[in-house]
């Protein structure tokens, strides 16, 4: 089937199999390899992107379902050359180690701060609780999001 998805503000029209998962459309179809794949069972959140205005696990959504919709990935987080405060926060607070969970974590953090500019530590932990990080023990991810909240949202 033919579909058009607006990814990070750019329209992409492609011929795909209806069964194609959104994560594979982004990674293999469009070469946007910033979003990752980490599990078979929708548990890890390495694949989180925004579909229209909400974060979703793109391994559990068909590319076809995004037809006619907008997708935002880590590659669309910075505003041109200007890093998002969340990206700054992750750097300042050592919020990443291997970096594999990082894009998904940052996209969720961005969504959280858009809806709750001054979250508590518990609210940050709740927001990222559908996403696994094997490296940071979460401590510095939480600090990174709180840093972003204090420094420009």
């Amino acid at each position: 089937m033919k579909l058009t998805v607006t990814v990070n503000g750019t329209d992409h029209t492609r011929e795909v199999e209806p069964r194609l998962l959104l994560i594979h459309f982004l990674r293999d179809g469009l070469g946007l390899t910033g979003s990752h794949w980490g599990c078979d069972t929708s548990n890890c959140g390495a694949c989180v992107v925004w579909l229209d205005e909400t974060p979703v696990k793109s391994c559990t959504v068909l590319a076809a379902m995004a037809d006619g919709h907008r997708v935002r990935t880590v590659e669309g987080l910075a505003d041109g050359g200007r890093l998002d405060p969340v990206q700054e926060g992750f750097t300042q607070c050592h919020g990443l180690q291997c970096g594999f969970c990082t894009p998904g974590m940052m996209l969720t953090a961005r969504w959280l701060l858009d809806h709750n500019p001054s979250p508590s530590e518990a609210e940050v932990r709740e927001a990222i609780s559908g996403q696994i990080c094997r490296c940071t023990g979460y401590e510095n991810i939480v600090r990174s999001v709180l840093w972003a909240s204090r420094n420009g949202g």
Partner: peptide, 9 residues
């Protein structure tokens, strides 16, 4: 970090 936070790992 510079590459990872941009999805450029």
């Amino acid at each position: 970090d510079a590459r990872f936070i941009r999805g450029r790992g």
